[in-house]
Structures are given as structure tokens and as C-alpha cells.
């Protein structure tokens, strides 16, 4: 029946792609990036400058998104905080990948006792919720930009490692790795030339998805007061701050929360787009 499927595929052409997806996803992320990069420049405020005469001023021509309890410009703080959040997320994902990808490759390809040992450690991590792991690490080292990044990275790697490992196991036994061995390729060459390329789409998509999680979990840590410490701002810490005024000035919470929502949405849409684009048949034609 594969013949039938092949005919159907060639005849149908590539399945009509959802064209709105890259536009909406890319647009969202683009606007948010622009906001973070040039926001403080055009608003003209210092993110940490207090102005007690203008506390809790709502959105106005002067303060586009209003001010907080110390009269700091929220537009500027959100832009600067966004940078912090994104940096933390990127760092955390980079750290998680740096641990998980090599480990996943090794355990998946070599198998045996290495595999057994590493995967039991992974199981241990699985038994504890991600955020709890992160909280534990922050608890040990004290809250700061760096520890948040480390904590999230260390909390994420087990999921990622297991994912990479199972993908490697799927590829390892395919005939083309046998073919490479028969040609005389060594272990490392097979990993480099045969297995990594096969995993690349998965890695790219998974990194993107993790990025979304990292943004959310940074917010979670910040909300618990375990993230970036004042006077520095991140989306998480701004959200935590807004909690105090949720009854008197609810718009502060909305302003702090909406960008998180939008960035996670944008990242997830882009992850979808990447997954479609990186489909082996579509990628090469």
C-alpha cells in the first residue's frame, strides 16, 4: 500500500501548509523582541528610577503602561525585565542541552551499564516536579540571575536526555547505521554523521519547546520570590510584585502577565512551524 501513499503524496503536493502560523508566530516574537531591545530607549526612563509623586499612575501619555508602587515606569521595566527573562530562559535551555544531548547520545548509542546508570538518575529526577527541583537548587545557592538560570537548566535536562536517548535508540538500529559500520565508520563518526543529523529536527523543535517552559518556570520562580532580586526586574519578579496590588491595581498584574502569555504562544507556534518544515521529505525538496 506504500505505493498508493506515494502516489497520493506526489499528486497532492505538500499538504497545504498553514500559512498564518509563521506570520503570527514570527510576528509575535518579532514585536516582543523589538519591545525589549528598543523599549527603554524610546520611553526615555531609567527602569530603576523611582518617582514617588507618580505612584500607581495608570497608563497615560507619559507612562504608557503606568507606574508601580515606587513610581517606576512599567513599560521600561517590562522591556528590561523581558531581556532578563529571555536571557535566563536561553541560558537554562543551553545548559540543559549541553548536559542532555551528549548524555542522551551516549546512553542511547552505547546502551549497557552506562545507559542503565544514567537513566536511573533520570528516573530520580522524574520523581520530583521540575519546579521543586529548581526551588531546591535556588534554596541552596540563594536567589539570583545566575542561580535561576542554573536551577532551571538542571531541572530540565532529565526530560531532554530521555527524549534524545529514545530517539537515538530508534535510529541506532536502522540499516543505515549498519551500512556505515560496514563501510568502516567508527563509533564517533557514526554518531556525528548518521545519528546527529537524524536528530537535528527533534533537537531544534525540542529546544524551542523548552524555551517556552523556561519562560514560564522563570515566572513561577520569580512569583515565589526566588528569581531575580529587586531592584532588578524580570517578568517573574514583576508578576510577583503585582500580587501585592492585585485588588487595588489589577492592571499591573495584567501588564506583567500578558507578555509571558504572548511569548510562550509565539514560541509554541514557531515550534510547530519548525516541526513541519523539518520533516525529512519537505526539508530537502
Amino acid at each position: 500500500m506504500s505505493a498508493v501513499a506515494a502516489v497520493a503524496a506526489t499528486v497532492d503536493g505538500p499538504r497545504t501548509k498553514r500559512r498564518w502560523k509563521p506570520i503570527v508566530g514570527g510576528g509575535l516574537l518579532g514585536i516582543l523582541a523589538l519591545f525589549m531591545l528598543v523599549g527603554p530607549l524610546i520611553s526615555g526612563y531609567d527602569p530603576n528610577a523611582t518617582d514617588l509623586t507618580a505612584r500607581f499612575s495608570g497608563p497615560s501619555a507619559e507612562h504608557w503602561l503606568g507606574t508601580d508602587d515606587l513610581g517606576r515606569d512599567l513599560f521600561t521595566r517590562m522591556a528590561v525585565g523581558g531581556r532578563m527573562t529571555i536571557l535566563i530562559a536561553l541560558g537554562a535551555v543551553a545548559l540543559a542541552s549541553a548536559i542532555a544531548v551528549p548524555l542522551g547520545l551516549l546512553t542511547g548509542y552505547l546502551g549497557g551499564w552506562v545507559d542503565l546508570a544514567v537513566m536511573r538518575v533520570v528516573d530520580l529526577f522524574f520523581a520530583i516536579p521540575t519546579l521543586l527541583v529548581a526551588i531546591g537548587i535556588v534554596g541552596i545557592f540563594g536567589p539570583s540571575f545566575t542561580t535561576t538560570m542554573l536551577a532551571l537548566g538542571l531541572a530540565f535536562w532529565p526530560f531532554y536526555a530521555r527524549l534524545v536517548r529514545s530517539a537515538v535508540v530508534g535510529v541506532r538500529d536502522l540499516a543505515y547505521t549498519d551500512a556505515a559500520r560496514v563501510i568502516g565508520a567508527g563509533r564517533w563518526r557514526i554518531i556525528r554523521k548518521e545519528i546527529v543529523p537524524a536528530l537535528l529536527p527533534l533537537l531544534i523543535v525540542q529546544t524551542t519547546v523548552l524555551l517556552g517552559f523556561a519562560v514560564l518556570d522563570e515566572a513561577g520562580l520569580g512569583f515565589l520570590g526566588l528569581g531575580v532580586q529587586p531592584p532588578d526586574a524580570s517578568w517573574g519578579s514583576l508578576l510577583a510584585q503585582s500580587r501585592g496590588f492585585v485588588l487595588s491595581h489589577p492592571w499591573i498584574g495584567v501588564i506583567a502577565g500578558v507578555p509571558i502569555l504572548l511569548v510562550v504562544l509565539g514560541i509554541n507556534i514557531m515550534a510547530d512551524v519548525l516541526r513541519d518544515r523539518l520533516d525529512p521529505q519537505g526539508a530537502s525538496t
Binding site: V7, A8, T10, V11, D12, G13
Partner: peptide, 9 residues
């Protein structure tokens, strides 16, 4: 037949 428009086969 499969496909539509100019891609009919």
C-alpha cells in the same frame, strides 16, 4: 484523480 487545479493527476 488526485489534486486540484493545475496539479490534477
Amino acid at each position: 484523480e488526485f489534486g486540484r487545479g493545475t496539479r490534477v493527476s
